[in-house]
Lab assay of single mutants.
Amino acid sequence: NLRWTSEAKTKLKNIPFFARSQAKARIEQLARQAEQDIVTPELVEQARLEFG
């Protein structure tokens, strides 16, 4: 299971509600691909840039 830093959680809250669950799934996918067990603000930002 993935842990989220408080900064990453804050960044996730800045994503519009309607896109948040999809973004969260993508962020967690990116973390797993990078073999990380902690979601960082950088991963959230990477996903945000993908979504535009």
Rank of each mutant, 00 (worst) to 15 (best):
G52Q: 14
A47E: 05
A47W: 15
W4M: 01
K11N: 07
L49P: 04
V44C: 03
Q36A: 11
R26L: 11
R32S: 05
E45P: 01
E28K: 03
L30S: 02
T40W: 04
A47F: 15
I38V: 12
L43I: 09
R26C: 12
T40V: 03
R20T: 04
E42I: 05
F51K: 05
E28A: 04
L30N: 02
E42P: 03
P16N: 05
N14H: 10
E50M: 11
R48C: 12
E45I: 06
G52V: 15
A19M: 13
L30Y: 07
A47L: 08
E50D: 07
D37K: 11
P16S: 04
I38S: 05
I38M: 09
W4P: 00
L12A: 02
L43T: 03
Q22I: 12
R26S: 04
I15D: 03
E42T: 04
E35P: 05
I38Q: 06
E28S: 02
L30K: 04
S21Q: 11
R32K: 08
A8C: 03
T5K: 02
F51Q: 06
A23S: 03
D37E: 11
L43K: 02
Q46V: 09
R3N: 07
K24L: 10
I38K: 04
K13M: 14
S6M: 12
Q29H: 08
L49C: 08
R3Y: 13
K11C: 10
Q46I: 13
F51R: 06
T5E: 05
R32Q: 08
L12P: 01
Q33W: 10
L49K: 11
A23G: 02
K9H: 08
E28R: 03
V44W: 03
Q46G: 03
T10Q: 15
E42D: 12
A34I: 11
A47Y: 15
T5A: 05
V39S: 00
I15E: 02
A34Q: 12
I15H: 03
S6D: 15
K13R: 12
E45R: 06
L2A: 03
W4L: 00
Q33I: 12
K11M: 15
E45A: 08
R32T: 05
L12K: 01
S6P: 14
K11R: 12
L2G: 01
Q46P: 01
R20I: 04
W4H: 00
A31N: 00
F51M: 13
A25N: 10
Q22T: 10
K9R: 10
E45W: 05
W4D: 01
A34L: 15
L12V: 04
A23R: 03
E42S: 06
N14D: 15
L43H: 06
Q36C: 10
L12N: 01
T40E: 03
A23W: 10
R26H: 11
I15W: 14
V39Y: 00
P16R: 04
R32L: 10
K9L: 15
T5S: 10
N14M: 12
E42N: 08
K13C: 14
A47K: 01
S6Q: 14
A25H: 09
E42F: 05
T40S: 04
T5Q: 04
R48P: 02
A23K: 02
P41N: 05
R20G: 03
N14L: 14
T40D: 02
F18C: 15
L2D: 01
P41K: 08
A47H: 07
A31W: 00
A19I: 14
A23F: 10
A47M: 07
K9S: 09
K13A: 13
Q22G: 08
L43D: 02
A31S: 03
I27Y: 01
K24R: 11
L43Y: 05
P41A: 14
I27G: 02
K24N: 02
A23M: 14
Q36L: 14
I27S: 10
R32C: 05
A19N: 11
F51S: 06
G52H: 14
S21P: 10
W4A: 00
A19D: 14
R48Y: 15
A47C: 08
K24G: 02
L2M: 10
R26M: 11
K9V: 14
F18A: 07
L30R: 04
I15G: 02
A25D: 07
V39A: 01
I15S: 02
G52F: 15
V44K: 00
N1F: 10
V44D: 00
K11G: 07
R26A: 07
T10S: 13
F18I: 07
R20V: 04
E7R: 07
I27P: 00
L43E: 01
E42A: 08
E42R: 05
P41S: 10
E45M: 10
A19G: 09
R26P: 00
S21M: 12
A19P: 06
Q22V: 12
A34V: 08
A34N: 14
K24D: 01
E42G: 06
E35G: 15
V39L: 01
L43G: 01
S21F: 07
L43Q: 03
G52L: 15
R3K: 12
N14W: 07
E45G: 03
I27A: 15
E28P: 00
Q36W: 07
T10E: 15
F51D: 04
F17N: 14
A23T: 07
E42Q: 09
R3V: 13
N1Y: 10
R48G: 08
E45Y: 05
T10F: 09
K24I: 15
A8K: 00
A47D: 05
Q36E: 07
A47T: 05
E28F: 02
I15M: 08
R26Y: 14
R26W: 12
F51P: 04
G52P: 12
I27W: 02
D37I: 11
F51C: 11
E45T: 05
L30M: 10
R48L: 15
P41R: 06
I27E: 00
P41Q: 07
E50L: 10
R26F: 13
L49A: 10
A8Q: 01
N1G: 13
S6G: 07
A8S: 04
E42C: 04
S21E: 15
E7I: 04
F18D: 04
T40N: 04
A34W: 12
E7W: 03
Q46K: 11
D37S: 13
K24P: 01
K11W: 09
T5W: 01
F51W: 13
R20E: 03
P41C: 08
I38T: 10
I15R: 01
L2N: 02
E45S: 05
R20S: 03
S6V: 12
K13N: 14
L43M: 12
L30H: 03
R3F: 13
Q36S: 12
E50Q: 10
F17S: 15
F17M: 14
L12E: 01
I15C: 05
L30T: 02
S21T: 11
K9G: 03
Q36I: 14
T40Q: 03
K11Q: 12
E50G: 06
A34M: 14
K24S: 04
V39P: 00
Q22H: 10
R3H: 12
E7T: 06
D37W: 13
R48T: 13
N14K: 14
Q33N: 11
V44I: 06
Q46Y: 09
V39H: 00
K9E: 13
R20K: 04
E7M: 06
F17E: 15
P41E: 12
A31G: 02
P16G: 04
P16C: 09
K13T: 07
A34K: 12
Q46F: 09
R3C: 10
A31F: 01
Q29T: 08
A23V: 15
R26V: 08
A23P: 01
R26I: 11
